[in-house]
């Protein structure tokens, strides 16, 4: 029963990882940009949430009403102001510029909030649980997983059933020809980054409710998100959710064997997938 419990908890944890990954996956899909600062942006969202909660006394989940639009705005400005100028055939500029951003965000947070671990207080939600058979499920992890499913379903719907989703796919397919259709790729990229950081905001708030965080934890979140994307297969959002779940389950099972093995077990699962199926478990089928 312990093992079943570990797998269930890991699955729910995977929802959070899928939220880390969704923004990363979206940005790569639309503009082939890998954002090294992604993890730090998640942490930035958590700090924004913390600030809103402290200033207004709102429940952290309600703080999303402020944090999501703020992060989306930051995303749009970041893309139009800096990142658009790094896109091209050369791989180095986006990589190094987002790496520089990562350092700036991390140290900026350190300057403003110090290195002390922080946590958002979600009150009764944090400890609430319900029984399912002989398992006890936390309301927060279940809610997190449900939000992940809703977010991914929403992104999927947006990509395949709306005009803006069509524009994202068109720009991703062929930037020049998309421009000939009257699409301003800089604006479309800005919107994609805004959307990605909106999702990142949700991930950051849920992270900040679930565990304590400090300015240095961004790198780890980037890596978890990245592993979920690669395990699931590039360009497939549902695959990313599956990748997050596999990573989460590997971690909880690892932790069950030895607490020191939690994170390592996740990495090992990732490396095994990389060795056996480098294209990921569910790569996008063309068409």
């Amino acid at each position: 029963m312990d093992w079943v419990n570990a797998i269930v908890q890991g699955t729910l944890l995977g929802g959070l990882y899928a939220l880390f990954a969704a923004g990363l996956s979206l940005i790569f899909g639309v503009m082939r940009l890998v954002n090294i600062a992604h993890g730090d942006l998640i942490v930035l969202a958590a700090y924004l949430g913390l600030t809103v909660v402290m200033a207004t006394g709102l429940h952290p989940l309600l703080a999303l009403v402020f944090v999501v639009p703020t992060m989306a705005t930051i995303g749009y400005i970041l893309q139009r102001g800096i990142l658009n100028f790094t896109l091209g055939d050369d791989l180095l500029p986006p990589l190094l510029v987002t790496f520089g951003l990562s350092v700036i965000i991390q140290n900026g947070l350190l300057e403003m909030y110090s290195a002390d671990p922080q946590k958002m207080n979600a009150g009764a939600l944090e400890t609430a649980s319900f029984a399912m058979g002989s398992l006890s499920l936390g309301v927060l992890p279940v809610l997190t997983f449900a939000i992940a499913v809703v977010v991914i379903a929403g992104l999927q719907w947006m990509f395949y059933h709306t005009a803006i989703g069509r524009a994202f796919r068109a720009v991703s397919d062929n930037q020049d020809i998309a421009q000939l259709m009257g699409l301003n790729k800089r604006h479309i990229f800005g919107l994609a980054m805004a959307l990605a950081l909106g999702v990142t905001a949700i991930a950051g708030i849920l992270l900040g409710i679930r565990t304590s965080f400090d300015p240095s934890v961004g790198g780890g979140r980037l890596i978890f998100g990245f592993e979920a994307v690669i395990i699931g297969g590039l360009g497939n959002l549902w695959g990313t959710l599956a990748g997050g779940v596999i990573l989460g389950v590997a971690q909880t099972i690892g932790a069950k064997i030895d607490p020191g093995w939690q994170i390592l077990a996740g990495h090992i699962a990732f490396l095994i997938v990389l060795a056996v199926r480098p294209q990921g478990l569910f790569p996008r089928v063309s068409g």
Partner: peptide, 25 residues
């Protein structure tokens, strides 16, 4: 409007979506 050399349709869009994106303006 341009009909580009080599067609250059958007591969991840269906036929109808390719037309719709042309009409998006």
């Amino acid at each position: 409007a341009v009909v580009p050399e080599g067609r250059q349709l958007f591969p991840s869009l269906s036929v109808e979506e390719n037309l719709l994106i042309g009409g998006r303006m």
